[in-house]
Write a protein that binds this DNA or RNA. Structure first.
Lengths: 125, 125
DNA sequence: CCTTGACCGGGACTAACTCCAGGTCGGTAT
DNA sequence: ATACCGACCTGGAGTTAGTCCCGGTCAAGG
């Protein structure tokens, strides 16, 4: 499949895919006789994984490390596992941030209600 | 309170606070006779709110708009409310992303278990 | 034959910081 | 008195993770 389709399937933008390939996060993609990229299913799965990792805040540096390990074969599975587990942990922290931010928003919105209530209801002594 | 303390209290870094002030996201902070910033409680509350908005992905541009409204007085509360509600909505999307990413990680980790199980357990026909 | 659409690489631009160099001020140690 | 220290200052360069734009190529269709 060509890059537009791969972008669609993975969630990444075309530019980002090219950028990822340039920076070695995506194993060199095959080219057709026309010189254009041809993405295999494995390529697209990989891009999709990258999409989710990045979307949830994994630094590209870490993804790069992960990519190197991936290309080095199954011996590197323990370290890859460590990376993913660390990220899973990071997601927990993110979730806690969302919780906290929701609290803050709720509080802030509540004070707005009060302020508006004050100015709209002409019921102050 | 001085900048170091304000940074500590709000969660932002010292550099980020200065950067926010430069870009007009923080109303001009008072200075002591020594020329150094002195943060009021209101300043710190504002910084803390900014911290949570930014931490959860609000673009600085939006925060800037929010800051302008904030400094324009209570008439702007409806629009400020809209911004915060939109952000609350955005948080929902983020949460869904976390859910999805956790699924992806769990799946990936499971395949690792299988691969390892295969290579470690010498029980293949 | 000519145009259109999808793709190409290279390089400029952007966002949101982060780091650094060189300078000032107030307080303490000598 | 002076030397030094730590916390702060400004301005500017560097970093990350893209995004955008340009001129160029190629295959297919009118």
């Amino acid at each position: 499949m060509r890059i537009a389709e791969a972008a669609n399937a993975s969630g990444l933008s075309i530019d980002t895919i090219r950028y990822y390939e340039k920076s070695g996060i995506v194993p060199k993609v095959q080219r057709g006789s026309d010189g254009k990229r041809r993405f295999s299913k494995e390529n697209v799965d990989w891009l999709t994984l990258l999409f989710w990792l990045r979307e949830t805040g994994m630094p590209v540096k870490t993804m790069h490390r992960f990519a190197v390990l991936y290309q080095a074969g199954d011996d590197t599975i323990p370290e890859r596992k460590t990376i993913l587990l660390a990220h899973a942990d990071f997601l927990k922290k993110r979730r806690a941030d969302l919780d906290r931010c929701e609290e803050v928003l709720a509080y802030k919105l509540a004070t707005y209600e009060n302020l508006q209530g004050e100015s709209l209801a002409s019921s102050k002594p």
